[in-house]
Amino acid sequence: MRRALLRTALVSLVCLTGLAAEAGGRRGVHPADRAEARFHPMYGNIPACDDPAVLGEMTSWFNSRESRFWGPLRALSYDRVAETGFRPWGDDFIPRRFCSGRILLNNGVYHRVDYSVRENLGLFGLTWNVNWCVSGLDRLRSYAPDCQMARP
């Protein structure tokens, strides 16, 4: 009885460890299943986190949303921008570059901003786009709790 229980526990541990390693890190993918081998291939050619086009698009969307729905806040600048992950879920998913930094608003307060630059998810699937969340300003809790769902 004791040996069977120990064997069951060991098998469970091995299975859970395998799933955790697969979910937490990059897993091996057959070359035919990679994003580059699709009918519309994705190569991971997306701009860097601190690219002016990326920050400009984020600023434009943030300022537009704030002025239209919530109030007078406007994005002024960014600092401490760094990449937090590139294709963290594997090569068969849509290529994404995850980034984090601080955004200075016109009220003089810095907020953490988490964002991802995603390939082929822009206009008509022809270009990249940015998905972002500003900590403390996720009023609809789309990325709750506190923008964690915008991170890898």
Rank of each mutant, 00 (worst) to 15 (best):
3 R>M: 14
5 L>M: 14
5 L>E: 09
6 L>V: 15
8 T>V: 15
10 L>Q: 12
11 V>G: 07
14 V>E: 00
16 L>S: 11
16 L>W: 07
18 G>Y: 08
21 A>K: 13
21 A>T: 14
22 E>M: 01
23 A>G: 01
24 G>W: 11
24 G>I: 00
27 R>I: 00
28 G>W: 15
32 A>T: 10
33 D>L: 15
34 R>I: 08
34 R>W: 09
39 F>G: 03
40 H>Y: 10
40 H>Q: 08
43 Y>M: 10
43 Y>I: 05
45 N>Q: 12
45 N>M: 08
46 I>E: 02
47 P>A: 06
48 A>I: 05
50 D>L: 09
55 L>P: 04
57 E>S: 10
60 S>K: 14
61 W>M: 13
61 W>S: 08
63 N>F: 09
64 S>L: 13
65 R>W: 11
65 R>G: 04
66 E>P: 00
66 E>F: 07
68 R>T: 14
69 F>K: 10
70 W>V: 04
70 W>F: 15
71 G>N: 06
73 L>S: 00
75 A>I: 06
76 L>N: 06
79 D>N: 14
81 V>Y: 02
85 G>V: 11
86 F>R: 02
87 R>Q: 12
90 G>K: 04
90 G>C: 03
91 D>R: 14
91 D>H: 12
95 P>K: 05
96 R>Q: 12
96 R>W: 00
97 R>W: 09
98 F>R: 05
99 C>P: 01
101 G>I: 11
102 R>T: 11
102 R>H: 13
108 G>P: 01
111 H>P: 03
111 H>D: 01
111 H>F: 06
112 R>S: 07
115 Y>K: 04
117 V>F: 03
118 R>T: 15
118 R>P: 00
118 R>W: 00
119 E>V: 03
120 N>L: 09
121 L>R: 12
122 G>K: 06
122 G>C: 03
124 F>W: 13
124 F>I: 02
127 T>F: 09
130 V>T: 15
131 N>F: 13
131 N>V: 14
132 W>T: 05
133 C>L: 09
135 S>E: 14
137 L>H: 13
138 D>G: 04
142 S>E: 14
143 Y>M: 09
144 A>H: 14
145 P>V: 08
146 D>T: 07
147 C>N: 07
148 Q>S: 15
149 M>Q: 15
151 R>L: 12
